[in-house]
Computed example of a mutant assay.
Amino acid sequence: MKYIYNLAFKMAVSATIALIIAELLNLDYATVAAVIAILSIQDTRKKALVIGKNRVLACLIGLALSIIIYNFIGHNSIGFGVFLIIFIPLTSKLKVEEGMIATVVLSTHLLVASNITLIMLKNELLLMFIGIGIASIANLFMPSLEDSFKDDREQIENSFRIIISRMSKSLITHSVDIYEQKLMDEIEENLKESKNRAYKIVNNNFFNRSSYYIDYINMRINQFDIIKKMRIHFEKFYMSFEQTKLIAEFTNNVAENITEDNDCKELMKNVLLLREEFKGMELPKSRDEFENRAQLLQFLNDIEEFLNLKRNFAITYIDNKNKTLE
C-alpha cells in the first residue's frame, strides 16, 4: 500500500493509464498524454491543484494563439518563432509557467499540420485533460504526515529539554558540554525537515485550513534562535552569585516543562517573582561582578522571551481549545 504514495510509482502508473486511455480513444500523439500526466504529479494536493489549473489555462491560451498565428503567418518556423516570442512571456506574466512546456508540445502538433481543424483541436484538448485528469486522481493519494510530525515534535521538545538543562548546569560549573554543538546542529536540521513536513500537511488538506503545524514549528524555530543567543552569554560567565543559583534552578525548571501543552503561565509568573527577589539583593561590589550579573539578567531576559513565544502560541491554540472543552 505504501507504494501508492511514492512519486515515481504514481508517475509510472499515471503515465501508463493516460497512454492506454489516449490509445483507446485513437488520439494522435497519445504519448503526450503520458508525458503531461508525469509532469502533473506533485508532492502536495494544493500544489497539484494549482499546477493543474495553470496548465489548463496555459493550454487554452496557447492553442488559441497557435490558431491565430499559424493562420496569419503560416505553418512554418517563423510562425512558430512568433508564437514562442508571444506565448513564453505571456505565461510568465500570467504566472502559469507550469503549462508552458506541455502547451508548446501541443502547439507543434498544429504547426506540422497543413490545416487546423476542430478534430485536431479536440485531439489536443483531450490529450491535456486525460494527462491532467489521471494525474489529479493519483495526486489524491498522499501519505498522512501527522504521525511523522508528532515524532518530530517530540524529538524537538526533547532536544530543547536537554540543551536548556545543560545550560542550567553550565551556569554553575562555567563549562560547556563538548557535545552541545553537535546537538544544536541536529536540532537545526530537524527543524528544517519538520517545517517542510508542516507545509505539506497544510497543503494536503483542503477542508481543515488550520495553520497549527506551521505556527508550531515557526514558534520552535524562533525559540531556537533565542537558545543561540542564550549560549553566547556563557562566553562571559566566570563568576557565581546568589542570583546564579536561582536562575540555574529556574532554567532547569523551564527545561523540565518544555511540552506541547504547557501554556507557560506559571513559568512567566516565576520570572516576575525572580526579578522582584533580585531587587532586594545586595548590589554588585565590583565592576567584574556588575558585568557578570548584567549578563546573568540578560540571560533571564532571553528565557522570558523564550517563554513568551510559547505563551503567545498557547493563547491561540491551547487556551482556546480548553475553553471549547469547558
Rank of each mutant, 00 (worst) to 15 (best):
F224Q: 13
R197L: 07
K200S: 11
Y212L: 12
I232Y: 10
M219I: 07
L246Q: 10
S210Q: 05
I162L: 15
K229L: 07
R209V: 12
E180N: 15
R197A: 03
K236D: 13
Y238G: 14
K200E: 09
S159E: 04
I178V: 15
I172C: 01
V202W: 01
V176Y: 01
I232L: 12
S211V: 12
E188Y: 13
R231A: 07
E180V: 08
V202L: 00
S165Y: 12
N190Q: 08
I227A: 14
F207A: 11
Q155K: 13
I163R: 02
E188M: 14
N208H: 03
K245A: 06
Y216M: 02
F160D: 04
L246R: 05
D215H: 12
R197E: 01
S194K: 02
S168R: 06
F241K: 04
M219V: 07
F250R: 03
N257T: 04
Q181T: 10
M230V: 03
Y216G: 05
N222R: 10
T244L: 05
T173D: 11
D177Q: 03
R161D: 09
E256F: 10
D225A: 15
R197D: 06
I178E: 15
D185I: 14
E157W: 10
I221A: 08
I232V: 13
R161K: 13
N252W: 09
I232H: 14
E256S: 14
M167P: 02
I187G: 04
E256Y: 09
K169C: 06
I258W: 00
V176C: 12
D185C: 01
M219L: 03
F160V: 04
M167V: 06
S210H: 01
E189R: 14
E193M: 11
N252K: 07
F207T: 09
R220W: 01
A248D: 06
M219K: 13
Q223R: 02
T259F: 09
N196L: 07
S168C: 01
E242H: 07
Y179K: 15
Q155V: 03
K169H: 11
R220V: 00
F234W: 02
S170W: 00
K245M: 11
Y238P: 13
I162Q: 11
S194E: 10
L246C: 02
I201Y: 01
T244R: 09
Q243L: 05
I226P: 09
S240K: 13
R209M: 06
D215E: 14
I156Y: 02
E186H: 10
R197M: 04
K195G: 14
E242L: 05
I258L: 06
N218Y: 00
N222G: 15
N253F: 11
N208M: 10
S159H: 07
N257M: 07
E256Q: 14
D215L: 02
